[in-house]
């Protein structure tokens, strides 16, 4: 990644506070005593072996997963069974999925305007203008009227990023955004994410793209078996990891 390092953000306000979070899938203890605080504008990379609970952790932040113990506070709203609170949090948090999850029956533009029109009640013309702005930012305005099935994986993922950005979120969650992509297309998506990072967006990103992590991360979190094993600045994290498990993991993914 040749891009310059983004300026590290000022720590002023905590937008996410997770305390003593525990979650089970049936009998499987998938998240164990997670504590995590994210301040405004911070970029956090979460990595770890598969099944370590990293996706589940970020999915708890917009309540795609329900937690059983502990507290998750997003933007001052504590997530509980109150649907109003959940809606409030979801409208502040954008999410990008591994499998894009674009709506295949709608054009790229309609994918972007849908939530604006139906959740934010934005007039259609304004919504389309805004959506075009974001599609230009992810550099695919010319694909606006195509259907997802007609776009490449990288283009689809950039539409998905534009779709989330349209709602003007305060926090963006990325759940392995490049894992389903061909190598050629990974770069175009990562470039889009680096540009987004430069705007000062708060980002939590589950990824194994370590070059990307070094470029944008304020903090790298390593998870294993439902716990946060290690948490550090990228320089220290990659140069001299403290835990044996982290060393093993890094040696395996950086080996080739």
């Amino acid at each position: 990644m040749a891009e310059p390092k983004t300026s590290k953000s000022n720590v002023d306000q905590n937008v996410i506070e997770i305390t003593a979070l525990n979650k089970w899938f049936g009998n499987f203890h998938v998240l164990q005593d997670i504590n995590l605080t994210v301040s405004q504008g911070e970029k956090i990379i979460i990595c770890g072996p598969s099944g370590s609970g990293k996706s589940t952790l970020i999915r708890c932040i917009n309540r795609l997963e329900e937690h059983q113990e502990g507290k998750v506070v997003v933007n001052g709203t504590e997530l509980s069974h109150d649907l109003k609170d959940i809606d409030a949090v979801r409208s502040e948090v954008g999410m990008v999925f591994q499998s894009f999850n674009l709506f295949p029956h709608l054009t790229a533009l309609d994918n972007c305007t849908l939530a604006l029109i139906w959740v934010r009640k934005t007039p259609k013309a304004d919504a389309e203008a805004l959506a075009m702005e974001y599609l230009e930012r992810v550099k695919i305005p010319e694909q606006a009227h195509k259907y997802p099935g007609q776009l490449s994986g990288g283009q689809q993922q950039r539409v998905a990023i534009a779709r989330s950005l349209c709602m003007n979120p305060k926090i963006m969650l990325f759940d392995e955004p490049t894992s389903a992509l061909d190598p050629e297309m990974i770069k175009e998506v990562l470039d889009t994410m680096i540009e987004l990072a430069e705007t000062g967006m708060t980002m939590l990103c589950v990824t194994h793209e370590m070059g990307f992590a070094k470029t944008i991360a304020d903090r790298v979190i390593f998870m294993d078996e439902g716990r946060i094993v290690e948490e550090n600045e990228p320089e220290k994290f990659f140069a001299n990891p403290e835990h044996e498990r982290t060393k093993l993991f890094l040696s395996q993914i950086l080996a080739h």
């Binding site: 917009n62 809606d87 979801r90 948090v93 999925f97 999850n101 709506f103 709602m167």
Partner: peptide
């Protein structure tokens, strides 16, 4: 319909 479609709709704040 894949689960991702429901999740994407939820994540966008649709009821």
């Amino acid at each position: 319909i894949p689960n991702g479609q429901y999740e994407a709709a939820q994540a966008m704040g649709l009821g």
